[in-house]
């Protein structure tokens, strides 16, 4: 079996640019392997400098293709890029096929690119935790930019805004997409809209529609979502897509938003981690089972039961 993370050697190896050590630590994180914790702790001070760009959107809109082109563009600018592709998994068997791996025409020896896929199923501690921890490992390994691909249609429990510094929502110019956008709440999370497959008919209309929506919508924290049309076959608009992302990143820096956003994300993450632990404790609490008996007997309802247990375990100070 694969070695568990041997540390703090593993942390040193990651800092040295050892790709295998990095890959193995990500596996350990995915598996909720506690042996990874010393390395994560040792590497945490080296995080916080990368731009973390979420690329999200419905199935098949071209997220991976756009990422492919972005990598080429960014390598051209001399930036190093890591990709974390969080894919949906088969609900039937517990297994999953992690899509076509992002297909790069990169030089085989190019150490400025690292691509990793992650199944969104059943990681100990949850996908959100595994995603964040993996992103941190990629940051600590020194990548300038981390692109995180997720399927955004409400099925995946990674909230990209809780991970990324800039969120890009990818859509395609099909009738009805506009409505879906609003429904899925994608509009709220987008800093940048990418209307991909703009080689197909209807692209201009979709772009205009989104522009109108962005114009009428309340700017979130002073930023109005940008809309960029792209195509990957042949590649077109990728430079403008990166410009829009970079503009948002610059906006974060200019107004001191970056640290505010980071504070929000970290507070939410820590609270989530505490909540998980409290949840586990409560599940093992003998008092819980007494209450469950009464709820089953219909002499107590679940909400009142929760209030009782909460008041008992967390008395008001």
């Amino acid at each position: 079996m694969k070695g568990t993370a041997r540390l703090p050697n593993a942390a040193q190896a990651v800092r040295r640019g050892d790709r295998r050590a990095l890959a193995r630590l990500i596996t350990a994180v995915e598996n909720g392997d506690r042996n990874a914790e010393p390395a994560l702790r040792a590497l945490y001070p080296f995080t916080g400098h990368a731009q973390i760009i979420g690329i999200t959107g419905p199935l098949g809109v071209g997220k991976s293709s756009v990422i492919n082109e972005l990598i080429a563009h960014l390598r051209g600018l001399g930036r190093t890029v890591a990709v974390l592709a969080v894919d949906p998994s088969s609900p039937f068997s517990g297994g999953s096929v992690l899509g076509d791996r992002i297909r790069l025409d990169r030089a085989p020896e190019d150490s400025g690119v690292f691509i990793r896929s992650m199944a969104s199923r059943g990681h100990a501690g949850g996908v959100a935790i595994a995603t964040r921890a993996s992103v941190r490992l990629l940051e600590a390994a020194g990548f300038d930019i981390v692109l995180v691909e997720t399927v955004g249609s409400g099925q995946v429990d990674v909230e990209i805004r809780d991970v990324a510094t800039t969120s890009v929502v990818v859509l395609v110019p099909h009738l009805g997409d506009e409505v879906q956008t609003l429904k899925a709440g994608l509009f709220e999370i987008a800093d940048v809209f990418c209307v991909n497959k703009s080689d197909l008919p209807g692209a201009e209309r979709a772009e205009k529609h989104l522009t109108d929506l962005a114009g009428t919508g309340r700017p979130r924290n002073g930023w109005t979502a940008r809309i960029v049309a792209t195509s990957t076959s042949p590649p077109c608009g990728i430079d403008r897509l990166w410009e829009a992302i970079a503009a948002h990143e610059a906006f974060l820096d200019a107004g001191g938003r970056r640290s505010e956003e980071e504070r929000r994300r970290l507070a939410k993450e820590i609270a989530g981690r505490v909540r998980d632990r409290v949840g586990e404790r409560i599940l093992e609490d003998p008092a819980l089972h007494g209450l469950v008996d009464r709820v089953i007997a219909r002499t107590l309802d679940p909400e009142t039961a929760a209030r009782e247990l909460y008041a008992e375990r967390f008395p008001p100070r």
Binding site: S89, S90, F92, S93, G94, G95, S96, V97, L98, G99, D100, R101, R103, S117, A119
Partner: peptide, 16 residues
């Protein structure tokens, strides 16, 4: 083959 391995509970990365 990829599908069969997946159905057996594995995580299959399909390289394309």
């Amino acid at each position: 083959v990829a599908r069969a391995l997946r159905d057996a509970g594995m995580e299959v990365i399909y390289a394309g």
